[in-house]
């Protein structure tokens, strides 16, 4: 890929898919993580510990499930309040499942991005990626349109989408090993002038994620496929917009295979 190539939404998505075809092992990593998350969901559904369903909506709702960082949507969640006073075996298993699920998602997402960007992964950057992922999933609001609050919701939606679009490169910048602050700043700068293209990417991936993640039982597997495309699109965008990691920190030797060194 060269700098200055097309960055329209369709072109980015198409190039991302092409990148995955060239690196099928990256898609396999995502699907493996999706399988692990599916297994965790199945255990949770059978467990006597309360789980929060990620797909409670019914009817003709249209959802846009785009997370700024590359991630896999889980079918069940955990309310922290449900952990209080659990018997020890269930506490250990429940916390273990949560950590395992998160670790699988971060390993696939961060590792996959590194592979697609030709970066050598590092444990510190991986942990940072996971921390940002947890923070964003906690802090980013869910915007709902409907009822008397629809007008306010539309305004809020426009604001949130404007920010999300400018942060599309963020997962790639974190995979470069940049600090959160640096990655945020460079992501903002790098996405400038590509707003509509990136909005198209957000729309396409968000709708696909919503559709596939809502499938019963295999939702996380569907979401992992979207996550693989998301990672590939971010990698393609970073390459095409040509603002790679600064020279001072480009001492890593690119890995030719997956995001995880052999």
């Amino acid at each position: 890929m060269k700098e200055g190539q097309e960055t329209s939404a369709l072109d980015l998505l198409s190039a991302g898919l092409g990148r995955l075809r060239a690196r099928p092992q990256v898609a396999a990593w995502f699907l493996l993580a999706g399988s692990a998350v599916t297994g965790v969901d199945l255990l949770r559904a059978d467990s006597p510990v309360p789980a929060v369903s990620g797909a409670e909506d019914s009817g003709l709702n249209v959802r846009l499930e785009f997370w700024i960082l590359v991630t896999i949507l889980r079918g069940t969640g955990l309310s922290p309040g449900a952990l209080v006073d659990l018997q020890f075996p269930w506490l250990a298993v429940t916390v273990g499942l949560e950590v395992f699920s998160l670790a699988a998602i971060v390993a696939a997402s961060y590792g996959g991005l590194c592979a697609l960007l030709g970066e050598e992964p590092s444990l510190v950057a991986g942990v940072r990626y996971g921390a940002v992922l947890v923070a964003l999933s906690t802090l980013v609001p869910e915007v709902t349109l409907g009822g008397a609050g629809a007008v306010l919701g539309i305004i809020l939606l426009v604001v949130v989408l404007s920010v999300v679009v400018r942060l599309v490169p963020l997962p790639g910048r974190l995979a470069y090993g940049e600090s959160v602050r640096t990655a945020l700043g460079r992501s903002w700068t790098q996405s400038g002038g590509h707003g509509w293209s990136l909005f198209g990417v957000v729309l396409g991936l968000g709708l696909a994620n919503s559709l596939l993640a809502s499938l019963p039982l295999v939702g996380p597997l569907g979401s992992s496929a979207v996550a693989a495309v998301h990672a590939a699109v971010v990698a393609v965008f970073l390459e095409r917009t040509g603002r790679r990691k600064p020279a001072a920190s480009t001492t890593h030797r690119p890995s030719a295979q997956t995001g995880l060194s052999r």
Partner: peptide, 9 residues
């Protein structure tokens, strides 16, 4: 910090 290998992961 050492980076884990794929096999280790």
């Amino acid at each position: 910090v050492p980076t884990p290998t794929r096999r280790q992961v």
